[in-house]
Design a binder for these strands. Sequence first.
RNA 1: GCCACUAUAGUUAAGUGAUAUAACAGUUGAUUCGUAAUCAUCAGUCACAAGUUUGAUUCUUGUUAGUGGCACCA
Length: 653
Amino acid sequence: MIKITLPDGSIREYEKGTTSLQVALSISEGLARNVLAAKINGEVWDATRPLNEDCNLTLLTWNDTDGKQTMWHSSAHLLAEALEALYPGVKLGIGPAIESGFYYDVDFGDKPITPEELPKIEAKMQELANKKSEYVRKEVSKADAIKYFTEKGDQYKLELIDGLPDGEITFYTQGNFTDLCRGPHMPNTGFVKAIKLMNIAGAYWRGNEKNKMLTRIYGITFPKDKELKEYLVLLEEAKKRDHRKLGKELELFHFSEKVGMGLPLWLPKGAALRERLIQFMQRAQIKSGYLPVATPHIALKDLYVCSGHYEKYGADSFQPIKTPRENEEFFLKPMNCPHHCEIYKASPKSYKDLPVRYAEFGTVYRYEQAGELHGLTRVRGFTQDDAHLFVRPDQVKEEFCKVIDLVLHVLNALDFKDYTAQISLRDKEDRSKYIGTEANWTLAEQAIIESAAEKGLRTVTEYGEAAFYGPKLDFMVKDAIGRKWQLGTIQVDYNLPERFELEYTGSDNQKHRPVMIHRAPFGSLERFIAVLIEHCGGNFPLWLTPDQIAILPISERFNDYAHEVLQLLNNYDIRGYVDDRDEKIGRKIRDNEMKKIPYMLIVGEKEVADRKVAVRKHGQGDVGIFSMEEFSDIIKNEIENDFKKGTVKEEVK
RNA sequence: GCCACUAUAGUUAAGUGAUAUAACAGUUGAUUCGUAAUCAUCAGUCACAAGUUUGAUUCUUGUUAGUGGCACCA
């Protein structure tokens, strides 16, 4: 007999070799019907796998993330089975579950499939699912595994087997399909009741661009048809928040083929938004002891040779601009840091001067490959809210923590709650791509890890994601359709001070090397605004929105009063416009609702007589009649509330 | 850059081997209006280039740009 501990703490005894599914059955038949997999001592197992020792057991259903993942992974196998049935001779790559659904990478040989064929594949999958074929796990020797796939002629699987140790290889079979797979899988294919193959894309085998490109088919499955429908509706809703769509509708920015791809043009309303964000950051930075600096858009090649950027990115940058006579080479600036190093060097520094914090809204240009451009999130010309802190080694952690505060101030002020801080460290094995000494890297990595822990950030650690010159802490936020983007970034750099031979005089009267911290709480303004648009669905916080109010005269007769109201409210720092088009009030309301204007002030006979305004709030409707002073208080309070959430400590120096 | 798909007016779309349709936006005029679309009027386009064809917006090829991925991201 073995003892099985259930999540509620109760312990039950079963015969050795009992499966999780049988355990479920002993609890309730309904539960057993819904069990997709089981978590055994924290590890996800097939529900049909025999249990031979005492263990903790959690049954997993569709309501558990791991349950969903199991079903989606099994669905990938179902897709593969359907593909083998419909397209004999296809070669299979890998087919994992992903955050929403699954994919399978397939080599169709010389006859690629088209999106029109997807419904046919879906139908086949459903047909196979309805057979309720069991997923059967089998441990195989490496030799047998190689034999099987050699006979099948699937070189991709053979390549995968090649990298696996003998004795740890398992096959899973359902129906007529057998795949190399670690598992786990759901008990049988019958759980799949709704299937949607989303799209087809190319993907390099094993993610290496030197390898062949396989066809990747993305799909998702559900245990109920209703859930699929809901999911598709959700996707539609998300598309409505796409910043590219809203940017057009709200007249924020524009791309022109004539100007060039990836080069955003900011329209007046978008520019107004940008300006507000810049002001917001400038205020916070002044409080935190930053010194504004400004640098040109081009610099001599030598600057980037010195910084190391030329060696690393020279070939993948916009190519140099040459002077006609001297033939000097200038590069468009891809970073602000080398310039700031030169500013640091412009005067001798004492240990008493540090930390020095140079801040610049610097516009930089990077040659991004055509295929990677995406709305405002990935562009070729963008503005960073960049700053470089030159600090003594003993100040690194304190300064790092202060920068985290600043980033949190930004995220709080804009109501971002769902973010993760990603700690990017060196690749564990390959260290050839990094420059700088082992000791400095270790110091920097430690500083980041400790600061993040001290600030209580929710972190994920990624090895191999560090910049070539140092580790970093990135704040990752999701867009409307779940794609993750890096916003704020903080990076420790021991390399540039070395390369630029930066120094300060210590209390010992000796020369010392400062440490540099790169930081950009927004990251790039372009990307930040893109994510912000999607985050708030175009309904910006009142302090930020380009137009806070629209004044709507009932008819032409009240236009003069409307303009007078605007003038008065301008004096209270409230901005907006008068909608004095020759339209009926219903029309004006509709149009301004669509433009997501936070407050509409309607003025007619009564309002003129009382010198008041009828206030209508976006998305809520009529909220009553107020005097200008009362209305200004409403606005002021709302803005204050937005800001109460974030705080920046005053810098005392 | 790679794989696949797309390109019709400012926007969103319909359609065709004989130069094309609608809605909204825009113009002009009427209307002077009380909380999500007043009526009428006018105007404007088949991304670009080459080819096939009596004839191409439609078919083919190329270019450019966009979309979904992959790879890349100082």
